[in-house]
Write a protein that binds this DNA or RNA. Structure first.
Lengths: 339, 339
DNA sequence: TTGAAAGCGTTACCAG
DNA sequence: CTGGTAACGCTTTCAA
């Protein structure tokens, strides 16, 4: 049986409350008593019982993270930096993957709510915002990352996906691509945002658009490489084959490059390709991949900081939106002189 | 305030215990009462309070995972499959990264112990087994993955690293490499095991070994690519340059290939390279990388199953060792005809 | 500065 | 089949 505060109090001939106070750094305890308690705590290797504490304070010192998939480098990085930041402050991070399945996600969130985690951090695959009404009702503070929902006011940390899309597209325009296609992502805010950024940039630069140049929405799951390959094949079959492609993410871009090379064409000479995410292995690929860096680590850190601030403040502050800056990283897949 | 069992009992005019029994599927409750309770539970959207339950049962329904780094594909995959398997059984997975820092790891484990997680799953960067004495003392069941410690008897799930090393080395021998070097990993069981496998295979096939062909131990952190590159450079400077290299993991192999190509040599014609881990992007690399597949997902699933069995059994069963099969995956980096 | 009493919501033990 | 009583280990409130 583990040591309890009662044991320590008995050993020292003082009250349990005094022990509790010392442990929580309350200052209405004499220095002498404090030292005695601290010494004894060390001696018997006492550790507080979180369950008991939770029961009375209502706090679990646990934060839940829901992401589609940890195999996706982006989310692994997020989880990594989140857990580090939270652990430092004494919070544990409970992870859970929900694929891109809104129903599974809802189910997971329900469980997290039932367990009364102190805060939730969510990269949601939900298609509407009913999920979040539930969260709000439960009163558990939450931070959305990566994906957002225009119709609800919520804490959000992520990049500006329209900027991402425009950024990538403009880069293709600048290197002289005249026919630019977009392999689009899922029906989520990044998917739509990057698409809009692409469309805006195309319009702004009076670029001609061709039928079929925007692929159908696709889930951004682990199979996005295959999907990128498949969709690129279709693009290559068009009469007016594109000479520049902006892919929703690096996985799809990799698939696209695969298809292009398989067709006997060159990257970037025949078709330039840019992705998004700046995976850590982008530079080691068959054709090193140009990409938009999302500063993933910073997203994680900001989300952690935001979540912690929500935990600490007793009032419910107004939802905050934090936009992280992005960077264009040019590699071989778009490295060509103006044609 | 959330609904409690007491509320439900009062509403229905029955005892709290009866409610509790229904909720835990005890069968000494009449079907009628059971239905009434269940209905009411739905109506008021009752969820049990885990903290209260924990306090009395001593179980947290939480499993802790300690890995060096989630950026490493291998560990991300492990975390992914673990969380899925555990969540299905109602357990949460709390993650934590400890780099390859034994002290930080110990600290993390202490915190996990203090929180009384029901079980721990650990890919340890520890250099000795004192850590585990602590775990044993605390009585928390734990499962080691990937790294093991010969001097303690503990639950373990992972591959046989000597087989991995021998497998990879033999493959290089078979394709006709006459001078085979090893970029070795850290001072952990996989690092040592793969090295031994390499040495054994070399001896068995009477292969000549050259001075400097086994690099110095290196941490297997996220920077292993750089380290692979650096160490490969040294090998290329030797008078007797190797024509085959077995790298501790795929990251190092990628770095090695980088160095080889930079030196104006060809892979696999001049130097064949094989790694270990079979990262999901191995096929998309500059030179698609031959590798040993560790069946990572299976490792995660087995570890989860093993952890769950420990949780469920009240007695402390004898430690179990589960060895997962590996597969050789041949790609371009070793694809050459016998010379 | 100290501490006794009163819970927090649940489950275990036993009696009805 | 049902339920009262007593924990579980801690914090909060309030009085000494």
């Amino acid at each position: 049986m583990p040591v309890t505060m009662k044991d320590i109090a008995r050993d020292l001939g003082i009250g349990v409350i005094t022990v509790s106070k010392v442990l929580r750094n309350k200052d209405d305890v004499s220095e002498k008593t404090r030292q005695r308690v601290l010494t004894r705590v060390k001696e018997v290797n006492y550790t507080p019982n979180f369950a008991a504490r939770s029961l009375v304070t209502g706090r679990t010192y646990l934060v839940g993270l829901v992401v589609p998939d940890l195999l996706h480098t982006f989310f692994a990085q997020i989880a990594n930096s989140l857990s580090e930041a939270l652990l430092r402050k004494g919070y544990g991070l409970v992870i859970s993957t929900a694929g891109e399945d809104p129903e599974l996600e809802m189910h997971t969130l329900d469980r997290f709510l039932a367990r009364r985690f102190d805060a939730l951090i969510i990269a949601s695959g939900a298609t509407n915002s009913t999920t979040f009404a539930r969260l709000r009702e439960a009163g558990t503070p939450f931070v959305l990352i990566d994906r957002r929902f225009p119709d609800i006011e919520a804490n959000y940390v992520g990049v500006d996906d329209e900027v991402v899309g425009a950024f990538a597209t403009k880069h293709l325009i600048e290197i002289g691509c005249s026919r630019i296609a977009h392999l689009r992502g899922p029906e989520t805010s990044p998917g739509r945002g990057r698409l809009n950024g692409y469309l805006n940039a195309m319009a702004e630069h009076k670029m001609k658009s061709f039928p079929g140049y925007v692929s159908a929405p696709k889930m951004a799951d682990v199979h996005s490489r295959e999907s990128g390959e498949e969709q690129m094949k279709k693009l290559l079959d068009l009469r007016q084959r594109p000479n520049g492609v902006f892919a929703y993410n690096d996985s799809m871009a990799i698939g696209a490059i695969h298809a292009i090379l398989d067709a006997g064409l060159r990257v970037p000479e025949d078709v330039a390709v840019i992705g998004c995410g700046n995976f850590h292995y982008d530079n080691e690929l068959r054709v090193p991949l140009s990409s938009i860096d999302q500063n993933t680590e910073q997203i994680g850190q900001c989300a952690a900081r935001l979540a912690l601030s929500l935990l600490e403040s007793k009032s419910r502050p107004r939802p905050k939106t934090v936009i992280i800056e992005t960077q264009l990283v040019i590699r071989a897949s778009t490295d060509r002189k103006r044609q």
